[in-house]
């Protein structure tokens, strides 16, 4: 465990809390992509299957349970809550996210640490997480005004994986740990946020509303 890793996980947790606060307090999920949330549920389920097979960890296990519970709760709210589901931008959330699942599954089938059920699904979840934000970024581009909580949510979500990259750099030098699969997927994932980061920081610096081209 190192500071980058701890900060990364807390940032990830914070992003989910921001989203839950937004949905619960404003009773609205306007600007949030349900497709991205669906993908995150898939990411967490396929990644945390080892909850039942590997020894529990005081640190990881609570986080895994919280990530699973919150991501499922968010999808539940957006699909079934009578008030919230009315505010979902169904006609703007148009990304064909099913086209993301198959390539990740095929890639995981061929590129994985070990050809076992758990490891292939773990690799699938790593690849899927890298692209899961795409529907959300596409939805933001079509949103006329992005509310602060949504902007902060996406920013934290991107920042957490960037912090994981620092954690991997640290572990490479300090513990000689090499992990190609999460490294490359994490780089792709963070790169996808690059333009969002640029506009987010620009709007924060000029103290104006966030607007994506």
């Amino acid at each position: 465990m190192n500071a980058f890793r701890l900060l990364a996980d807390l940032t990830h947790l914070l992003s989910i809390i921001i989203l839950l606060v937004k949905i619960r307090t404003t009773k609205s999920c306007a600007g949030i992509s349900l497709k991205t949330q669906d993908l995150y549920v898939l990411v967490f389920i396929s990644r945390y299957l080892d909850l039942f097979t590997r020894p529990l960890s005081l640190y990881n296990t609570p986080f895994k349970l919280v990530f699973l519970a919150t991501s499922i709760t968010i999808v539940y709210y957006m699909r079934y809550h009578k008030v919230v589901k009315q505010t979902y931008n169904k006609d703007s959330d148009t990304f064909k996210h099913y086209f993301l699942i198959l390539p990740c599954a095929v890639l995981a089938f061929f590129i994985n640490p070990k050809f076992t059920f758990i490891e292939v699904l773990w690799s699938f979840s790593i690849y899927l997480e890298a692209v899961a934000i795409l529907p959300q970024l596409v939805l933001l581009q079509s949103s006329s005004n992005i509310d602060n909580l949504t902007g902060n949510y996406v920013f934290m979500l991107g920042a957490y994986r960037a912090l994981y990259l620092l954690n991997w750099i640290y572990r490479f030098f300090a513990e000689d740990v090499v992990r190609w699969i999460p490294w490359i997927a994490g780089l792709v994932q963070t790169a996808l946020y690059a333009d969002f980061f640029y506009y987010y920081i620009k709007s924060w610096r000029n103290n104006e509303r966030l607007k994506l081209p």
Partner: peptide
């Protein structure tokens, strides 16, 4: 192709 790595990260 990677060796079996412990899943100690989230």
């Amino acid at each position: 192709d990677c060796y079996d790595q412990p899943k100690d990260e989230l």
